[in-house]
Simulated scan of single mutants.
Amino acid sequence: MTGDVWLPIPPDEIEGLPKGPDYLFWDGGDDGAQEFPGDPADCVFYVVPYMRPAEVCVRPMPRMSSVRVVQTLSAGTDHVEPALADLPAGVRLCNARGVHEASTAELALTLVLASLRGVPEFVRAQDRGLWRGGFHPALADRNVLIVGYGSIGAAIEDRLVPFEVARVARVARSPRTTARGPVHPIADLPSLLPDADVVIVSTPLTEDTRALVNADFLARMKDGALLVNVARGPVVDTEALLAALEGGRVTAALDVTDPEPLPADHPLWTAPGVLISPHVGGATSAFLPRAERLLVNQLHRFVNREPLANVILTTGAKGA
């Protein structure tokens, strides 16, 4: 197998890469002004830079006339999908399933526990030298609803088990049965939301899930419920959420927002009952070893002409 492979991790830092391709390093640095490492037309396997703006990630794609695989290092692929129309037919888009489950699930639990137990208030009191206690809800005995029950949603439930929650309900695009119980279709949300004390959103961003958490969704949540978003910002209607927060009906913990980054003067920063983290669900020490294992595995499959893992779609295919 010949051709260039563009990697956002220096190739000499990745053990086990297969021989054959020419490995070039490009991580989209310098706000995307970084020079390309070679001619994009010679790239056959493009690993998209991680945690870069979408406009940076897609910048070389219109010139990638020979590319066969676009591999993201994120679970979501919505940031590169608009540029797929510029690519030839037959290009496989693959995501990073298996890379972010541990880190994102950890953060989801962190946001839930911090919000329920009042940690933000404790930190603010500490900054002022105040010993300020109080009564807060526990995660134990709560009903939890996971909206988006893919590999990350399942990893979140794995970490909920020791916390003695009363019940976990699961929602995904398609209904199915798992060892832990049924997965409901999105159409069941209206009947599931009123019982949930904690709603964790971990669904991919698609046209079907954009603004899924809208005014109607929020109105169906029980009074005092907590919304946690570790998916994508546009899954939540920001204006509807602000109205619900200002009304005091719900609280929220958000790792992602719309817009993002959140401007300094945005009202979400000061809305009551909201905890915001700056899109750090996958940005931990767990990322690099899992990302490298994924890339080595995918590139061995590619070089040996074996089926790739994590294929989301193929350009030019019916329905793509």
Rank of each mutant, 00 (worst) to 15 (best):
V56P: 04
V56L: 07
V56F: 09
C57N: 10
V58N: 02
V58T: 15
R59I: 04
R59V: 06
R59L: 07
P60C: 05
M61S: 02
M61Q: 04
M61C: 07
P62T: 03
R63G: 14
R63C: 14
R63H: 15
R63K: 14
R63W: 15
R63P: 02
M64K: 01
M64Q: 12
M64H: 07
M64F: 10
S65D: 12
S65F: 08
S65A: 11
S65H: 10
S66T: 13
S66K: 13
V67S: 01
V67L: 13
V67C: 15
V67Y: 00
V67H: 00
R68M: 11
R68D: 08
V69Y: 14
V69C: 14
V69R: 07
V70E: 00
V70Q: 00
V70R: 00
V70A: 01
V70Y: 01
Q71P: 13
T72F: 04
T72V: 11
T72I: 08
L73H: 10
L73V: 11
L73F: 14
L73P: 06
S74Q: 11
S74D: 09
S74G: 09
A75T: 12
A75G: 11
A75Y: 11
A75K: 05
G76R: 10
G76W: 08
G76P: 06
G76N: 09
G76I: 06
G76T: 09
T77K: 00
T77F: 07
T77Q: 02
T77C: 10
D78A: 15
D78C: 11
D78Q: 15
D78R: 10
D78K: 08
H79N: 07
H79A: 12
H79C: 03
V80A: 03
V80N: 00
V80Q: 01
V80W: 00
E81H: 05
E81R: 14
E81A: 13
E81S: 10
P82Q: 13
P82T: 09
P82H: 11
P82D: 10
P82Y: 12
A83P: 05
A83R: 04
A83F: 05
L84A: 07
L84F: 06
L84E: 07
A85Y: 01
A85N: 04
A85W: 01
A85V: 07
A85H: 04
D86W: 08
L87R: 00
L87H: 02
L87M: 05
P88G: 08
P88R: 13
P88I: 08
P88Y: 09
A89L: 06
A89P: 08
A89V: 04
A89G: 09
G90S: 07
G90Y: 09
G90Q: 06
G90A: 05
G90M: 06
R92K: 14
R92W: 10
R92Q: 15
L93K: 01
L93S: 02
L93E: 03
L93D: 01
L93P: 02
C94I: 05
C94H: 03
C94S: 03
C94N: 03
